[in-house]
């Protein structure tokens, strides 16, 4: 047990430290100017010096991300349930869902910013839109893919569609929801960046653009690191949720 923990820590350390060392070595040995590629020490220094600024902007971005994800997830689950329950809604909305998947939703960011302005609403809508479709389609695909034997069981029992959805289809579709969530937490931070690049006066994406324009490359890297850390946290949260749900559904 202790040995396992030690090995995990060691592996994490190696995986983290080796690329950083390689990065510093590249910078030192090649003599690339720091406004092109600052070394990790410089980036760490910038991270420390601008901690307040980064924190403020990260808070704004994370707030948007959280609200956008929440809206996208809730709307996505609701749409998938409605589609699974109503053949008419399916007939009407399913082609739209397919088309929306083919069109890169990211491309809508300028339009959304035009309509909703530079503030939070346009960011939240962009993030929600980008996470909504993968959640909807991943969940819906599993909801309608109930094994034939269970469909028979439901029909023979004489139950109603709402209870079938709640007690058979929904538990069966949990893995679909989880894979939708995995996609959502990958797309979400991307949508944060794009929304802020298109037009914003705050946030990590905004900070990256600003520092890039001013030649503060180290600060740009620092902002990028913070965003990556945010993404990683979300991803780990979904992984943990996924493990917990799988254990809950399949054993004990």
């Amino acid at each position: 047990m202790m040995q396992n923990l030690f090995h995990t820590l060691l592996r994490g350390l190696v995986v983290l430290l080796v690329p950083i060392a390689g990065w510093q070595a590249t910078v030192t040995l090649s003599g690339i100017p720091q406004y092109i590629l600052p070394g990790p020490i410089l980036v760490a220094q910038s991270l420390w010096d601008n901690a307040g600024l980064l924190w403020q902007n990260a808070l704004w971005s994370a707030g948007n991300l959280g609200l956008g994800l929440l809206a996208g997830i809730i709307l996505g689950i609701e749409t998938a349930l409605m589609l699974a329950l109503s053949p008419r809604a399916r007939w009407l909305l399913r082609p739209m869902l397919v088309i929306a998947q083919a069109v890169p939703v990211f491309a809508l960011a300028p339009v959304i910013t035009l309509w909703l302005g530079y503030g939070m609403p346009s960011k939240i809508v962009t993030i929600a839109l980008v996470t909504y479709f993968p959640i909807t389609s991943a969940l819906f695909d599993r909801l309608v893919a109930l094994p034939a034997g269970l469909v028979d069981l439901s029909q023979l029992s004489g139950g109603n569609p709402c209870r079938e959805l709640l007690f058979l289809r929904l538990p069966h579709a949990v893995p679909g929801l989880l894979s939708g969530l995995r996609l959502a937490v990958v797309y979400g931070p991307l949508a944060v960046l794009i929304g802020e690049w298109v037009g914003s006066s705050q946030g990590l994406g905004h900070l990256m653009l600003m520092s890039n324009g001013r030649g503060q490359t180290a600060l740009m890297f620092a902002a990028l690191l913070v965003l990556a850390f945010l993404s990683l946290c979300l991803w780990l949260a979904v992984e943990a949720l996924s493990r917990w749900a799988t254990r809950l559904l399949l054993c004990g």
Partner: peptide, 26 residues
């Protein structure tokens, strides 16, 4: 009906599996 494949719900325990039809009817 009962088939070759037991058609039990993988997420439900034995008792819940036995009572699933009643649960579907309410």
């Amino acid at each position: 009906m009962m088939a070759q494949d037991d058609q039990l719900l993988p997420w439900a325990d034995a008792l819940d599996n036995i009572m699933i039809s009643a649960r579907l009817r309410g």
